[in-house]
Design a protein around this nucleic acid. Structure first.
Lengths: 216, 216
DNA sequence: CAATGTGAACAGCTTCACAGCC
DNA sequence: GGCTGTGAAGCTGTTCACATTG
């Protein structure tokens, strides 16, 4: 029953089952530590980091400890090397190219969003279905025809951001899967059906707003 | 110990403690049922709804049952009345006016976003700090000076959407709290410190993207 | 002494099984 | 037969206490 001393009791068992919630928090840590790195901060304790992020210190320690012992007792976590570790864990070392589908207002905002760079993301191409938008320049990029999504395979882009209306989302998702995309950030209020091997994260802005009045 | 037969044993105890996760899913149900209502669908079973939303039927039944017995055994849930019930539960009956802070690309996209209406939300005013943007028209609205945020109190707007850069988010949040705002949807990659009485929901798009490579 | 790393207790949420009803 | 409503079981994630280390 002791995972650390007896590996692989059950084929289905992950060697260390890391909670999804822990994974969800890792980018938070990465961003906070990256900022500290810029400020030339050498080390930070779980207590200080918890204060910044409004979490509990043991939570942070447990989360990080799933991946090994990054910290030094009595001192805290070394900022720079922990940043590198987390990047490796999240597979964010090196640039991650993503395709953006939808060149409407939201897509345009996403294309210009500066916040992706902390994680090494780069919007590498933009697609739309509307003839009016195809060929248009957005920043340094030219909007491509969504009918050519299959070119993503050649370009080895395996990440997509879906910023299209809900009605179009499912068919776009299918085209993306066909084009070899392995991860989709869905910004439309829709529930995508994709093969299990493809990971979808949906952000529904209106739904997030929808809970606020309840708590007020 | 039995809550249903013995109310108010402990002052601190909520009469029925409803899981936050249940609340988070309620807008999903509301949206799905609203669409069914438009399609003139009379009733739906938990199984059908679960299929649409990629959830388990018992989850949906349990969630809805926290608020009473909406369904009919052997039949399912009456669409129209359940929609009304959920609106009441989430305090979404009637129009909810929200202020939008930030008239940049993201703010502009949010201002035009059609998805809020299902929940009865309406962006009632837009603010920005940049002199260039103040006075500009966005749709039918004119961008106001963020220095005048305190007018929200008079207008009884208690909901805000924060679409400003991370560096400006905390000070904006404080101004909003000062102006009597009770709920904030924070779209910036920052961790807001607000009084406990104010509810904040943060959506960090880059962070959501940040987990995808791990799962790929 | 200060802080991490971690088994164990605890809390919260999900899933199940089935009684009750249409 | 079909479907809801719900206590109970099971699972996942969080918090705690403390041994351990610099």
């Amino acid at each position: 029953m002791n995972v650390s001393t007896n590996i692989k009791i059950d084929e289905d068992m992950k060697y260390h089952k890391i909670p999804d919630e822990t994974i969800r928090r890792m980018p938070m840590y990465l961003r906070a530590l990256s900022l500290l790195e810029q400020d030339a901060c050498q080390t930070i304790s779980s207590r200080q980091l918890a204060q910044q992020l409004h979490l509990n210190p043991p939570q942070i320690r447990k989360d990080l400890s799933y991946f090994g012992a990054f910290g030094k007792r009595g001192i805290g976590y070394p900022v720079q090397s922990t940043v590198q570790q987390i990047r490796k864990i999240l597979k964010l070392d090196g640039t991650q190219s993503a395709a953006l589908i939808g060149a409407g207002r939201l897509g345009t905002a996403i294309a210009a969003y500066p916040g992706f760079s902390v994680f090494g993301f780069e919007v590498a191409s933009i697609f739309d279905i509307a003839p009016k938008k195809i060929g248009k320049k957005i920043g340094a990029m030219t909007v491509e025809d969504a009918a050519d999504l299959d070119t993503l395979k050649k370009r080895k882009i395996r990440l997509a951001i879906l910023a299209v209306p809900a009605e179009a989302a499912q068919s776009c998702a299918e085209a993306l899967v066909q084009a070899g995309v392995k991860g989709i950030l869905n910004l439309s209020p829709s529930c995508l059906a994709v093969p299990r091997r493809v990971k979808v994260v949906t952000i529904d802005i209106a739904m997030a707003l929808g809970v606020l009045p309840y708590y007020m």
